[in-house]
Computed example of a mutant assay.
Amino acid sequence: MTPSLVVLTDFYAVPNRALSYAAGLAVPLHAQLVLLHVRHDNLLAPAEYGDSYHTWRGEQKTAFALQQLATDQPVPTEVDISDDALPAAVREAVRHRHPLLLVLGRPDPLIAPEELVVGTAMNLLRRVPYPLLLVPGAGWDAFPPRRLLLLVDGQPFGLRPHQDLVRRLLQATGGTLGVVQVLTDGAATPDVAAVLGTVRANDLVDAVGDESLYQVYQPTVVDGALAEASRQQADLLVVVARPHGWLGGLLHDSVTARLLRASPIPVLVLPAEEEG
Rank of each mutant, 00 (worst) to 15 (best):
P76Y: 04
P76C: 03
P76D: 08
T77N: 05
V79C: 12
V79F: 09
V79M: 10
V79S: 05
D80V: 15
I81E: 14
I81F: 03
D83A: 15
D83M: 00
A85C: 07
A85W: 12
L86C: 09
L86F: 07
P87L: 11
A88Y: 10
A88R: 13
A89D: 08
V90F: 09
V90M: 06
R91C: 00
E92A: 15
E92D: 13
A93C: 00
A93T: 06
V94Y: 10
V94D: 05
R95L: 08
H96E: 04
R97M: 11
R97T: 07
P99A: 07
L100Q: 12
L100C: 00
V103Y: 12
V103F: 04
V103T: 10
L104N: 04
G105T: 08
P107E: 03
P107D: 05
D108Q: 01
L110K: 15
I111K: 13
P113Y: 14
E114M: 14
E115L: 13
L116C: 06
V117W: 11
V117Y: 13
G119M: 12
A121D: 01
M122R: 11
L124A: 03
L125P: 01
R126L: 13
R126F: 07
R127V: 05
V128Y: 07
Y130H: 13
Y130N: 05
L133F: 10
L134R: 00
L134I: 10
V135C: 00
V135I: 05
V135A: 10
V135S: 07
G137H: 06
A138S: 04
A138H: 04
G139Y: 09
D141G: 09
D141V: 12
D141C: 01
A142K: 01
A142Y: 05
A142V: 00
P145R: 06
R147F: 02
L148S: 11
L148D: 08
L149T: 01
L150E: 06
L151V: 08
L151N: 06
L151A: 15
L151P: 01
V152I: 01
D153R: 05
D153F: 06
D153W: 02
Q155M: 09
P156V: 09
F157H: 09
